[in-house]
Amino acid sequence: MILAQVIVSGLLLGAVYALFSSGLTLIWGMMNVVNFAHGDFVMLAMYVAFVAYTLLHLPPLVFVPLAAALLFLLGLFVYAAIIRHVTRGPMLAQILSTFGLALLLRYTAFWIFSANFVTLPDTLVGGTVAIGGLRLQAARLLAGAVALVLTVGLHLLLTRTALGSRLLAVAEDRAAAQLVGIRPDRMQGLAWGIGAASTGIAGALIAMFYYISPTVGESLALIAFVTVCLGGFGSVPGALLAGLAIGVIEALSAYLIGAVYQDVVVYALFVVLLWFRPQGLLGQA
């Protein structure tokens, strides 16, 4: 029974991983740029939730959309001010620009909020829920469910709407998309906005039950990298499956080996993947 409990809570957290990793894979697939600040975007969203709740007493129903909106704007800004200018430059510039941004965000948070871990109160989303003999934290259940729905929604947006087709057209061939009247810059900027908004929602959701610290983004970024590689680069359904899998792997390794090693197992999985299946489990060789 405990094992089932561990697996279900792993799946719930994994759905949140899937949500923000979808944002990373969208940006990556659109323009071949890896956002090394992705985890720090999630961190920022967590602090948005923290500040909104503790200072303004806003409930999750308000602070989750608020974080999504703020991070969407941040994504647009980062694209317009930085990314647009470095994509045609050397690889060094591409990687260092988002990595520098990560440091800037991380240590600004460190400076403002200090290194202490903070949490939102357990009672934020009413205690625990019993489902079929499992006792689950209501906040985790809510976060997992919302994240799952939104990740599927993002996939539908990309595959079933005209906007999604325009985005994917730019991802496939920037110049050809331009020829048929799509503005690549707009679409890429939008991808950054959507990608960052996914971290906004995911961050505000996990803030309800996860510890919040300025450096939390470092391990979250690595989790997103592993998720994207496991799911296959650019694939939202892949990211969803991989996110769930990584949530479970992490929960099981914390339960069976010890909590300090849960990240080690995931990072080791990343190295193993790079050696044996860099295209991901679902990708084609």
Partner: peptide, 20 residues
């Protein structure tokens, strides 16, 4: 040290953006 790394982040970003 926190401040130092804010500045470091800004410098890395600025180099990448303007002067690779």
């Amino acid at each position: 040290s926190g401040l130092t790394y804010i500045v470091y982040g800004a410098i890395i970003l600025a180099i990448a953006r303007f002067r690779p």
